[in-house]
Design a protein around this nucleic acid. Structure first.
Length: 497
RNA sequence: GGCGCUAUGGUGUAGUUGGUUAACACGCAGCCCUCUCAAGGCUGAGACCACGGGUUCGAGCCCCGUUAGCGCUGCCA
């Protein structure tokens, strides 16, 4: 039997980092086992689901490169089937009509109020005390026919327990007495989550459910539905959760953009790097290799590599340099500087295009130059954005001079204002404008002026790139070429700031 | 409150059927390299393996308890 897994987000926001990892693990498992990775949008909560969220989630998955198989299932499309299933269960006596009027909940702190109520019950609540549970069928049907609204609840047996072997957490058991007669169908005949999920997983022939650990206790309820339906449940694997730095819940409301996948795409992250980072949050190959391509992840991925305790996603909202997890940034930088240049080029192209810095010659006459330049400057970049920011001077004459760079390398030596144009004049006459030869020329120039090489080099870098930091100055000269180098050395722009 | 899950340096993780100086990566510090900054190389700081009891010749690994965090506890998903 081929494995079939699904990623089933509810479209109530963008693709959250935790959901992204769930999607990734499902994808890896499917590909590893040669199975199918399906996508289902759980849009049964009409009030909160939006098309925009669906688009954003799809965008996130596409960016990550997690291509799904088969067509996307929209859960709301299956509502009639869910309803029929509930009615069927009712008919078989495995569910009953609950005529209790719907409780209106103040929408504020739902979670808290539920917990409070549960606490007030002191754990003495009898889960089987619903007065309608054993209402004679004739009476129940009669009231229904009379138009009295009712919800349909699953009739959970008095004694016994549900059990399942979780691929990650091992054997899980739960007494029936701890599970309420869960509602299958609302009084407005709207099917509820647990019913919908089970029906759809059956319909989609899902063999392995891989989802967040927050569903661990829900699973027992779903097992009950499977049992009522007489269908063998799939195998479950629950994933540890991803927490905020304070080990609390990681949420959009509290933590903002750091949790959204699109943030990383827009911040110049390489999907491959982010996927690599994400894979290691709660999973380990149990080898010392951490840098892994998607293909390597696919072949290394097994469920027993999944960790059982929650992982902290580390970041500091007050530190711009640490706006997201250090290791995620490190992975990205590592990918940028070590991946084959040809592979990086398309990403740099896209970045330059978005900043209006792209020229078609980079793919034509200047292809070799472009590749060499990217290869040169990528060594100290962290994101794709750096190519158009710190690296802007390599692709445009219109670049800014970093004030700190000026202060550090220009202002300190007043004579530089004369020297650099002089150096420009010298360079103008250099025939062989290459690294080794330029080294001889510039060194000679510095000796003549009686100054340290670094003084001239650093000042030159500020004039030619606007930055205090960057590649070796000789490499910059060579890359920019004689004409631009000379022009920029003569320019007074930086001095006037 | 009840039920469940978890607990290895700041973070992510390894730790094989109980026998180690508790390993690796990120981050941090220092040194080397050096025209700057990275990268790279080297070195280092940082964990009484949450705490307390057992079992054992021997426990991070097994058992019990405590504590803490998290999850669920809805006619949300």
């Amino acid at each position: 039997m081929t494995t079939r897994v699904r990623f089933a987000p509810s479209p109530t926001g963008y693709l959250h980092i935790g959901s992204a990892r769930t999607a990734l693990f499902n994808y890896l498992y499917a590909r590893h086992t040669g199975g199918k990775f399906l996508l289902r949008i759980e849009d049964t909560d009409l009030a909160r689901s939006t098309e925009e969220s669906t688009r954003s989630i799809l965008e996130g998955l596409e960016w990550l490169g997690l291509q799904h198989d088969e067509t996307i299932v929209f859960q709301s499309d299956n509502a009639p089937k869910h309803r029929a299933t509930a009615l069927n269960l009712l008919e078989e006596g495995k569910a009953y009509r609950d005529f209790t009027p719907k409780e209106e909940r103040a929408d504020g702190d739902v979670k808290t109020s539920i917990a409070d109520r549960a606490r007030a019950q002191q754990g003495e609540k009898n889960m089987r005390d619903n007065p309608y549970r054993d209402l004679p069928e004739a009476e129940s049907a009669q009231r229904a026919d009379a138009g009295e609204p009712f919800a349909i609840r699953l009739k959970v047996a008095e004694t016994g327990k549900t059990k399942f072997e979780d691929s990650v957490y091992g054997l899980q058991e739960r007494e029936y007495s701890e599970i309420e007669d869960l509602v299958l169908l609302r009084s407005d005949s709207h099917p509820l989550y647990n019913l919908a999920v089970v029906c759809d997983d059956i319909e989609m022939e899902i063999t392995n459910v891989i989802r967040g650990q927050d569903h661990l206790t829900n699973t027992h309820k779903q097992i009950l539905i499977y049992e009522a339906l007489g269908i063998t449940p799939p195998t479950f694997a629950h994933l540890p959760l991803i927490m905020a730095p304070n080990k609390g819940k990681l949420s959009k409301r509290k933590h903002g953009e750091v949790v959204s996948m699109t943030t990383y795409r827009d911040a110049g992250f390489l999907a491959a790097a982010f996927v690599n980072f994400l894979a290691l949050l709660g999973w380990s190959s149990k080898t010392e290799q951490e840098l892994m391509t998607l293909d390597e992840l696919v072949s290394a991925f097994t469920l027993d590599g999944i960790h059982r305790s929650n992982a902290v996603f580390n970041f500091d909202a007050n530190d711009p340099r640490r706006w997201t997890d250090d290791k995620a940034i490190w992975f990205n930088a590592e990918y940028i500087r070590t991946m084959p240049v040809e592979g990086l080029l398309p990403f740099v192209k896209a970045e330059l295009k978005s900043e209006k810095l792209w020229r078609d010659e980079y793919e034509d006459d200047d292809k070799a130059w472009f590749e060499a330049t990217v290869d040169l400057i990528r060594q100290r970049f962290f994101t794709l954005k750096d190519f158009s920011h710190q690296g802007r001077a390599f692709f445009s004459e219109d670049y800014d001079f970093n004030p700190e760079a000026i202060a550090k390398h220009l202002s300190k030596e007043p004579l530089l204002k004369q020297w650099l144009p002089e150096l420009a004049a010298v360079l103008e006459n250099v025939e062989d404008f290459t690294h080794d030869n330029l080294e001889i020329v510039v060194k000679g120039f510095c000796e003549e002026k009686g100054t340290k090489l670094g003084t001239v080099m650093n000042a030159s870098r500020v004039l030619l790139t606007g930055q205090a930091v960057g590649p070796s100055m000789l490499a910059i000269f060579e890359t920019l070429g004689k004409e631009k180098s000379v022009l920029r050395l003569k320019s007074q722009l930086a001095w006037n700031q």
